[in-house]
Design a protein around this nucleic acid. Structure first.
Lengths: 356, 356
DNA sequence: TTGAAAGCGCTAACAC
DNA sequence: GTGTTAGCGCTTTCAA
């Protein structure tokens, strides 16, 4: 190992970070002048400003945002929190990116965390973010109610809800037209002649899952179709569960002629089950949320597509607006989802093996 | 709008956050006693401790981590930085999740940001994280060299590199055996009889892209095959570029009999081009990085699979180890990638239309 | 076992 | 234009 590498790795040669005081001493000015220069406050002569910048550069000075935040009147940390279901889920990863897009432009950092549908974790992380004094919070709620957030909001941590609205609390939100979009998609299946439609829904208690279920019922009732309790499977938590349930339905005496899967993981599990049963070309399917390769599978998968990155951007915009105008009324932005027609949603029903 | 909702949304009723001082007053003890109780320091009588906790609870007290970090001897912020190529890329999203897995257990927050292959952004964000006094940094470097980081490390911000090693600097790292794994995959194609193999590589200057290219050359040279400059296309930046280049090669007089694509986005573009050209069952393909549905496409896509979540976990472990022992020697952990055999990698070559 | 005083690095308020 | 002083909310140090 070269001396260079030792230097880079270890901290035996650790050099304490210079403070503003050090920069002031090096530049031969007062502390306050350094503060003015580095914060671009007006009223510093160019020559002093240049000396200060030179000294700061030579010392590799990094302003201490922790100290500055503590002292500043508004106590802003230039950091926001983001709580979502799972950072690694492509839907939420894109939402996260949308939030970052907006924050990056204004130099705001994003502290993100996954809740994994764990209500305790939601509460713990909200408290943790409050302790960090984030300037605001964007969250995809997972607990069954969010009334507990009222006091955090009153204490100066504005919250914007993304993808799902909170319960027990009015608040700003950005989400899609879950119920209407589901209704349209299921109506499309019905238009294609389906009357034996299975519905796979996500975790109970989560608003989007409820809304999509209602949209399914809307379409079924509007068409005068009966909803089979055997084919309505809700509270599904994973790809594997969806796949197992779909496989079970496909092995039964009477098989649905179409599936509506209300979330991306459920679509993935169901499409796997259809494929393994060799029935993917005979049974129709529409899923909520687009995913990579939905158009390349055989058959290509019709989906109700959202724009998660846009949801994130709008949520961040809304949060900054709220921070600037704390007393404006709550706003809920509903983004339209679009039914993306591919092959799987246009498959016609085949007669049931047995008549139920 | 109900009064409750007004309360929740706006901040006209804003209540300033209580401080430790307020808790002390409410509990009738001194500031220091509150500090001791809330930090679980020993030597406080149970009755006082109980009174303090009660008061803190009633006031909805949230310890101010900003203030505590500033005052504490080690100035730790319980926050680390994570710089990666793109938060929304499934590979990096999983790596991020691995980092979170480890940090969550010890109450450390993760500030993540995307670099988008922008060297200036890398430098800007490193400086920004230094200003925030993150306790450490995990990064996937994108700039052509990282010697500039030596001073940040010396100033007390340890850095662990993930997925790629830095240049011009020795440091801790966690990555996969890019070169060897690529060599094995290309050798597999050669074993299957291929001698007209195209290589699609990622952005030049990025270490993984270089390593995988070398692995390709290793396999080709070992087999005595000639490397066609027309079929080696490097510095590809996007799905679209890869798709366009693959389409171009497929339309030429002489067509490769197999593709090796060195990154997930390139695999996606190439597999789309193969499909649109109707040649996906006649031309072999192996890609670096697994992706959702690789096994469900027709043909299923053989890949060199990494475990990005594990990379993230190990990188975070290594960072915490480094923080605890600043003077230990640098460690580079190399995780093996596994060649996942599916259909596309086992397609046999068909004769070239013309002999070159 | 408890508390008083000092001060982390910076910005606000007010001199000069 | 520039500098001085005070103090953000907490932990450290030291005294009782």
């Amino acid at each position: 190992m070269t001396p260079l590498s030792r230097t880079a790795v270890g901290s035996s040669l650790a050099r304490p970070r210079p403070t503003m005081r050090d920069v002031a001493a090096a530049a031969g000015v007062s502390l306050k002048t350094v503060s003015r220069v580095l914060n671009d406050e007006p009223g510093v002569s160019p020559s002093l400003a240049a000396r200060v910048r030179l000294a700061a550069g030579q010392l590799d000075y990094r302003p201490n945002l922790t100290a500055s935040s503590l002292r500043r009147a508004d106590q802003r940390t230039s950091t926001i929190g983001l709580l979502l279901e799972d950072i690694a889920n492509p839907f939420f990863a894109l939402l996260h990116r949308g939030v970052e897009d907006v924050c990056e432009e204004v130099g705001v950092g994003v502290l993100a965390a996954s809740l994994d549908q764990d209500a305790d974790r939601e509460r713990r992380l909200v408290a943790a973010f409050a302790s960090r004094r984030v300037d605001g919070l964007i969250m995809v709620p997972t607990d069954s109610e969010q009334a507990y957030l009222a006091k955090e909001i009153r204490s100066g941590m504005p919250i914007v809800f993304a993808d799902r609205l909170p319960r027990g609390l009015a608040g700003d939100g950005v989400l899609t037209d879950n119920r209407e979009a589901t209704q349209r998609a299921v109506a499309h299946l019905i238009d294609r002649g389906h009357d034996r439609i299975a519905f796979f829904g996500g975790v109970l208690g989560i608003a989007t899952a409820e809304e999509r279920y209602l949209g399914f019922l809307d379409a079924m009732y509007a068409a005068g179709l009966q909803v089979s309790s055997e084919w309505v499977i809700r509270d599904l938590h994973s790809v594997e569960q969806a796949q197992a349930q779909a496989a079970r339905l496909l092995a039964a005496e009477e098989v649905p002629s179409a599936f509506f899967t209300a979330q991306n993981y459920l679509s993935i599990g169901t499409s796997r089950a259809l494929r393994f049963a060799g029935m993917e070309h005979r049974i129709a399917m529409i899923g909520y949320d687009d995913f990579e390769f939905a158009d390349m599978l055989s058959p290509s998968i019709s989906v109700v597509a959202q724009d998660p990155r846009r949801i994130g951007q709008l949520a961040a915009d809304l949060l900054f607006t709220r921070m600037a105008e704390p007393d404006r009324p709550a706003t809920v932005t509903v983004l339209p989802s679009v039914l993306t027609h591919r092959k799987s949603g246009d498959i016609r029903p085949t007669p049931a093996r047995e008549h139920g």
